[in-house]
């Protein structure tokens, strides 16, 4: 009897102590969460505020919320930045790159994850190293090459550069998503007379959808935000992407922070919407693939 009483007493004391400690911890966690959120959000909030102010108000009140909301900034930034053209172009660059990248990368990743032909290890090492080299490290020889191939200033020229630049990481990541799939399904399909291509498209592809989504998102984000290569390989304003619209504000209308901020928001908006919508699948995709070599 007494023994049981002692034990239960100690248990309740222990639990009470733990729950006190727990609530203290929760307060601390919330405080840290709040701090980190503020760190992430404040620059973006300032940007949003400034996009809604007059240039005059930014001078007097560079940080706080706008006294009067000037929505016209967006219309003006849209026109001055020629966003109608650049937005269309960026969508072309992003969609074309993602599509080609996933087909090309999917095929290669499948071969490396499943078939492992002789030379696979060497290829993997090359992809691993190549994925860390930014394109502009070899931008001068690439420029010469593009000129010889008569691909300078074309849509497909820039798209090809984006595909090649992202291919090593894409293949590397897609392979890590495919390598752990159970083989039984594929074998069953083969017994039923499916060829390699059908096995890939009907069996492997549906099972690795989160992986493809994640890689597509990473590649798409990179292309949407890319600036240096676009400026180097495209010279016709009719083919410029959105990032060049933004650069125009910073260079030419140096003093107009209202338009610069509005321009930044215009570029950010579509990405943020997409990003928030896909965030959940994105994290799940990363979790499923893991980072395996």
């Amino acid at each position: 009897m007494t023994a049981i009483g002692k034990v239960s007493l100690r248990d309740t004391v222990f639990q009470r102590g733990q729950s006190k400690e727990r609530s203290k911890l929760l307060v601390f966690n919330h405080a840290v969460l709040l701090l980190l959120t503020a760190f992430a959000v404040i620059p973006l909030a300032v940007l949003t505020f400034n996009s809604l102010k007059t240039e005059l108000e930014i001078g007097q009140n560079p940080l706080g919320p706008p006294k009067q909301i000037i929505i016209e900034n967006f219309a003006e930034a849209w026109d001055k930045g020629d966003f109608a053209t650049t937005m269309r172009n960026s969508v072309i660059y992003v969609v074309a790159t993602i599509t080609a990248e996933l087909i090309l990368g999917g095929l290669a990743a499948y071969a490396l994850a499943r078939k492992r032909p002789p030379g696979s290890d060497l290829l993997m090492l090359y992809f691993l190293v190549a994925s860390t080299i930014p394109v502009w490290m070899y931008i001068v020889p690439l420029f010469v090459q593009m000129r010889t191939m008569k691909m300078l200033g074309t849509f497909h020229g820039l798209i090809v550069i984006y595909i090649a630049g992202n291919a090593p990481l894409t293949i590397f990541l897609l392979r890590s998503y495919m390598i752990d799939l159970p083989r039984e399904l594929e074998d069953a399909a083969r017994v039923d007379g499916a060829n390699e291509f059908q096995v890939l498209t009907r069996i492997v592809l549906p099972l690795t959808k989160p992986g493809f989504l994640t890689v597509g998102l990473v590649v798409g984000l990179g292309v949407w935000n890319e600036y240096t290569l676009a400026l180097t390989f495209v010279h016709d304003p009719n083919r410029f992407p959105v990032t060049t619209s933004f650069a125009k504000f910073v260079d030419r209308f140096d003093t107009n922070w209202a338009l610069t901020s509005a321009g930044a928001i215009i570029i950010l908006f579509p990405v943020m919407v997409l990003f928030l919508a896909l965030q959940r699948q994105f994290i799940e995709g990363l979790a499923e693939g893991g980072i395996k070599t």
Partner: peptide, 26 residues
Amino acid sequence: KIVPYLFLLPAVLLLLIFNLWPTAAT
């Protein structure tokens, strides 16, 4: 034996022309 290489071919070809060659040129 050939099929895996066919799957790898587009990616490898692209990287050869637009990645490996210019890197080597530097």
